[in-house]
Design a protein around this nucleic acid. Structure first.
Length: 640
RNA sequence: GCCGCCGUAGCUCAGGGGUAGAGCGCACCCUUGGUAAGGGUGAGGCCGUGAGUUCAAUUCUCACCGGCGGCACCA
């Protein structure tokens, strides 16, 4: 029998005379570890404690304190939930139930719908099962036998899963008490390890195997943690996230609203529109610096143009159409590119004109599925900070690199430093030959690599005319949002007849790079509201300062302060209401006004103001002109 | 689009077969108060829309519309 050498994370090595289980290894290291051990990890793979290690390996023993413990707890919680559901509601079929970020879910098939009350019952039953502390026992079954077993007990989804597994994959069944489930594992030693730090959260529909052609199952979501304290902390975090929901803040801060007559389209209020415009101003400055020119193209254009571009065929499901009294059919633009090409096509372009960077703050309309709509994040009409860069093939790499750099610089200016990049290649529904796709994918890939950026591949998710990079940013509370995009397009210039005259005197099609940095201004505004929890930086805050009086004796001076602020270009209002200063401070703090200038007798006498910043505990007494100068400086856009 | 839940005052929500309540906000009055809620009075609702059951529907049933949470789809 050959010996087995186990290397532990601290570098120490232990020799054994033959295969050894994770449990035995833990016991060999110490009795404390033997009871604390939940699983082992070999080469980044988690494995049951009961499974044996039969060759030299590096092994980490996973305990409740390990980062990996959460995944085990959550996965086990899913199994416990499935058992609870089948105990309470016989005849319910189980399907799949993985651990996910912050928790777990399990998809069930049952004719009757679960109700919120059922969640409580299921949760109570889960606590019982955890208390029973049944051991998780792994068994390997013969494939046919397993498939037959699940079919016999009416679990057609499990049977279907088994039939879909690769022939060489062992079929493992995990047993907990009398209940068993088809599962790849691993699991902790027993149900008791799930503990009490879990809670069922919501019911949802979910398609079997994620395919909308399949039947819908009932998904139960739960969250699970090491203990009740961690659970409580997480629930608290969720409450905080809810408070910064942009839909709620949008109403509280009087920024925008939605209504039935225009579902999925924003009604911007004066304050919201000010914020929106400050972002456009910022981007316009940045783009001018980066060598862009700005254009504007029609919102409604003839069907013929969309047929030529390929949108009619490949994108019409998402398009609004309209007609007037003549019998021509028009479409509301879902993208700005065809319009942009029309501007490019005016006059003859020379290779000396390239790269030509044409920006457009274009408002596009897309018919999104009703269930997809979500505040400002997902709407049916949105403004893109779009641009089309017309360039020669040999300029692709450079131009892409510059765009990537611009995107990352700008995101970082808003405090988004955690940016992920996805590379999306050719979709099934596309225009253009495979040769063109080979070429454009290769060009984009080499450009992103030249920019020194890491990315993951998103197969089949490209635009119908070309591959794209998607810039996903992570906000202050860890949520991901897709914003910027950069696409290489060798198709539309040809379809829409764009040319330039090369140095060789011949006509060539330019390459078109489509790019947007914020992506959708609406979405980006929503992200910023949530990212800053409504406490917007001064330069984009719709209302930057409020002058508030202590008593009405200060009214005249307050107006003087207000005029000084306005003269310095600061968006300011005055509050001379007959209310106590406490009340005014509280109200304007809730309204997230970044600066408050309080004036009373003392300030009048010295021509000063008491400057209080949002969230600040104390105030500063400053001479009026000094306070105005300082605020004006703080209100300046970083791009100005 | 699909599944589930929800729709009562500007907002947050209670109620319930006999046509309605609270807190905040709003208006007016008193109060002129130094950094997160001073007091009083009052106005405000086709109880989402339409049909059905009923002597009677905001309440029960159904349909539609919209919102929310997921799924699917995407900036």
């Amino acid at each position: 029998m050959s010996t087995v050498a186990i290397t532990l994370p601290d570098g120490s090595v232990r020799q054994f005379n033959g295969p050894i289980t994770g449990a035995e290894l833990a016991a060999d290291i110490g009795p404390g570890l033997a009871t604390a051990a939940l699983a082992i990890k070999i080469d980044d793979e988690l494995i049951d404690l009961s499974r044996s290690i039969d060759c030299d390996s590096t092994v980490e023993i996973i305990t409740r304190k390990s980062d990996d413990a959460l995944e085990l707890i959550r996965h086990d919680a899913a199994h416990v939930m499935a058992e609870a559901v089948q105990e309470l509601y016989p005849g319910t079929q189980v399907t799949i139930g993985p651990a996910i970020e912050h928790g777990f879910y399990y998809d069930f098939a049952r004719d009757e719908a679960f109700t919120p009350d059922d969640l409580e019952k299921i949760e109570a039953k889960m606590h019982e099962i955890v208390k029973r502390d049944d051991a998780f026992v792994r068994e390997e079954w013969d494939r046919e036998e397993a498939a037959k077993h699940f079919k016999d007990i009416g679990e057609k989804y499990k049977a279907e899963l088994i039939e879909g597994f690769p022939a060489d994959e062992p079929i493992s069944i995990y047993r907990q008490g009398d209940w068993k489930d088809l599962c790849r594992g691993p699991h902790m030693p027993s149900t008791g390890h799930v503990g009490k730090g879990f809670k069922l959260q919501k019911l949802a529909g979910a398609y079997w195997r994620g395919d909308s052609d399949n039947e819908m199952l009932q998904r139960v979501y739960g969250t699970a943690w090491r203990d009740e304290k961690e659970l409580k902390a997480h629930l608290h975090m969720l409450e905080e996230a809810e408070k910064r929901d942009h839909r709620r803040l949008g109403r509280e801060m009087d920024l925008f609203h939605f209504q039935e007559e225009a579902i999925g389209s924003v009604f911007w209020h004066p304050k919201g529109w000010t914020l929106f415009q400050s972002l456009i101003d910022y981007m316009r400055d940045r783009q001018t610096d980066a060598g862009y020119v700005e254009i504007n193209t029609p919102d409604i254009m003839d069907r013929g143009l969309w047929e030529k571009s390929g949108h009619w065929e490949k994108f019409s499901e998402n398009m609004f159409t309209t007609e007037a009294k003549e019998d021509r059919v028009f479409a509301l633009k879902p993208m700005n590119c065809p319009g942009g090409v029309q501007v490019y096509n005016q006059g003859i372009k020379s290779y000396r004109d390239l790269p030509l960077r044409m920006a457009e703050f274009g408002k596009v309309h897309r018919f999104e599925p009703s269930g997809a709509l979500h505040g400002l994040m997902r709407v049916r009409a949105f403004t893109q900070d779009d641009a089309h860069i017309f360039c020669a093939e040999e300029q692709i790499t450079d131009e892409c690199r510059i765009v990537c750099q611009l995107i990352l610089d700008i995101y970082s200016e808003f405090g988004f430093d955690d940016v992920r990049i996805k590379f999306s290649d050719r979709p099934a529904k596309r225009i253009g030959s495979d040769e063109i796709w080979d070429k454009s994918e290769a060009a984009l890939k080499s450009a992103v690599e030249a920019a020194g950026l890491e990315y993951t591949v998103n197969p089949g998710e490209g635009a119908f005319y070309g591959p794209k990079l998607e810039f996903v940013l992570r906000d202050a509370i860890g949520r991901d949002w897709q914003c910027g995009t950069l696409q290489v397009d060798l198709n539309l210039p040809e379809r829409l007849g764009a040319f330039y005259v090369g140095a060789d005197g011949e006509k060539h099609h330019p390459v078109m790079l489509h790019r947007a940095l914020f992506g959708s201004l609406e979405r980006f505004t929503g992200i910023l509201i949530e990212h800053y929890a409504g406490k917007l930086p001064l330069w984009m805050a719709p209302l930057q300062a409020v002058v508030a009086t202590i008593t009405s004796d200060a009214d005249d001076y307050a107006y003087e302060v207000l005029d000084a602020l306005k003269a310095a270009g600061i968006r300011a209002e005055i509050d001379i209401r007959n209310e106590k200063i406490n009340y005014k401070v509280r109200e304007h703090s809730h309204a997230k006004v970044p600066a408050m200038l309080v004036v009373g007798q003392r300030e009048i006498e010295d021509r000063k103001v008491a400057l209080r910043r949002l969230g600040g505990k104390d105030q500063e007494f400053l001479a009026l002109d000094k306070a105005v100068a300082r605020l004006a400086e703080d209100c300046r856009s970083p791009a100005a």
